[in-house]
Nucleic acid binder design. Structure first.
Lengths: 337, 337
DNA sequence: TTGTAGGCGTTATCAC
DNA sequence: GTGATAACGCCTACAA
């Protein structure tokens, strides 16, 4: 069933049917009614391939989401959808695997759907370096800094990773912890780099030498990896009194490991996470963490992409404020100064 | 840039370029090489709209996933992708919102991509009743029973929800618990119905009258909802000694509520969940739960859809075995008989 | 092995 | 208001 069939059946021409289906003006009420009736009768739907093929431009913005079970991204998407509701743009979402190439995918989407702008939720610097020059659309990379990439059509909005980590670690130091271990992602990742930098910064500000700092265990952002990393730390000669985990999931894995080892959080070892995902609030003890504001992240990304599209605003790179959420997973060794 | 440009540039014709791009035989090595070089040079990509439009049939199976942060579905998808890797089919995935209409979406996809079969991860009976008659492709509904719908091209694979719930509750009864409360989804949902049926069944088998059973608190499948439901139970005159939560997330919310109320799991109140998600293993105490086998769910769905497509097998409705994972959230009041 | 031409289902630009 | 008709980019007979 195509609009051709619809035309034949209603006695109107292709053009009129198409006009009705696209809510164009200049169609008689009568035509609209007859045609819509036929549409409903058959449950007719337009073929979007044909539509996309023909349309040169669409009032569409595409959001490419990396990884399909990321609570932060899911929440951000909700806000984003709400924001686009009252605009002339339609937000379309495309989920891709964690390790798929988002830039390649974006290029395909540009070809097929001809969107006005691109939003990337998560992204790998390397993929951008290699292929983003082929993309000419205003784009915003959310959750990862694109300043260094310096494409003039690629903005970015990120949480202040370095500052957040610094704040978390400083909080631990202020509470009297000394050797603070870090568990986090691969040192090769930009985000991990920044958070590690924040860790160092907090120490530097208090004049603590590198040799007097705790160890860094690399892993992936998962419960299991957090567990394993912590387990490793627990079996070393000198156990840390506190751990900074670069992600809440790692923090939770770590807390479980501490429990299994027979120690307690925060009595024996304190833990601070990063992200602010829900489960942190439900875990026992409630996780003290650096909260990324998904709401502001979404809002600023939205504003930036729209400004770039409508006013040709230049690409910008913005850092969003974080918030230290003090809960129950940190013990005060000396009263904070 | 289109294949036309590519043809012009390489001196070959449209046909040859297309053949190269689609790995057809009957192309000279030379042509393949020159054309591929041009493709790489420009980073050329085919327009999939045009491709889909033209192609009448594709060796494709589409998986429509409802809700984009469902751990069970994400895991199932991983298995599914692995299963399809060695077949001639390409699995394409389409994520839709929790409350979008999966059947409508499926119809659109059929029009656009002309797949050979459909996989639904999650689905609403009502949507199927209303619109599935328009879909003529072999389909499998995973995680929700489609027997009652009785479409001859719609199979289903589900965990034995009733049996699982019965097992969970029986385990609690066997451990000496008496008034077992239930917290779960809306009584209107099929899955909740089945799990509630299992709860009743476990009691019937031991000859326990409805009046001697615990209360049922309705909610949604979320941490918060589990928390609220439990809080309500805690503030009633007669507190339960055990709770069966229809989802692990609810169970975790409930455990947090118990903690906040000043009681302990399992010493004061025991909890059993349903699903077998990761966090249950990391929570303190580790959650005793009914595990749905995502692996088998995926495997059987895969086998069924392929059988329907290739051998015209009739639709079937299968129940997958669950597993009771005994961990730390249940206390034995009397030794189990 | 390669080239040519028709058409997939739409939308948009014309006339009428 | 409405109806022809020409693309959109690609695939695939069929012809050479």
């Amino acid at each position: 069933m195509t609009i051709k069939d619809l035309a034949r059946e209603t006695g109107y021409s292709l053009g009129t049917v198409s006009r009705v289906l696209n809510n164009h003006p200049n169609v008689s009420e009568k035509a609209r009614k007859t045609i819509m009736e036929a549409v409903d009768r058959h449950g007719f739907m337009l073929n979007t391939s044909a539509k996309n093929l023909k349309q040169q431009q669409s009032e569409t913005i595409c959001c490419i989401v990396k990884g399909n079970s990321n609570e932060l991204f899911a929440k951000m998407l909700e806000y984003m959808q709400a924001l686009f509701l009252n605009t002339k743009y339609t937000l379309i979402t495309d989920f891709i695997d964690e390790d798929d190439n988002e830039v390649l995918r974006a290029r395909q989407i540009c070809l097929d759907k001809k969107p006005k702008g691109l939003l990337f939720f998560g992204g790998n610097q390397k993929n951008f370096q290699e292929g983003f020059d082929k993309i000419k659309l205003p784009s915003v990379l959310v959750t990862s800094d694109a300043k260094e990439l310096s494409f003039d059509n690629l903005s970015s909005v990120t949480t202040d990773d370095c500052g957040g980590a610094c704040c978390a670690v400083d909080y631990l130091l202020a509470n009297g912890h000394q050797k603070i271990a870090v568990i986090g992602g691969s040192a090769a990742s930009d985000t991990s780099q920044l958070r590690l930098r924040g860790y160092a910064l907090a120490h530097e500000r208090r004049g603590i030498e590198p040799k007097d700092r705790g160890p860094y265990v690399e892993g992936r952002y998962s419960y299991k990896s957090g567990y394993d990393a912590m387990w490793k730390l627990l079996n070393e000669e000198e156990k840390p009194t506190a751990v900074f985990a670069m992600a809440d999931v790692m923090a939770i894995g770590a807390m479980r490991a501490i429990n299994d080892y027979g120690l307690r959080v925060p009595e024996d070892i304190s833990v601070v996470g990063f992200d602010g995902i829900q489960i942190g609030e439900y875990f026992c003890p409630k996780l003290t963490t650096i909260v990324q504001s998904v709401e502001i992240l979404a809002k600023r990304s939205f504003e930036m992409i729209v400004a770039c599209i409508e006013e040709g605003a230049p690409a910008g790179h913005e850092k969003i404020a974080f918030e230290l959420k003090r809960k129950q997973s940190v013990k005060t060794i000396i009263s904070p100064k």
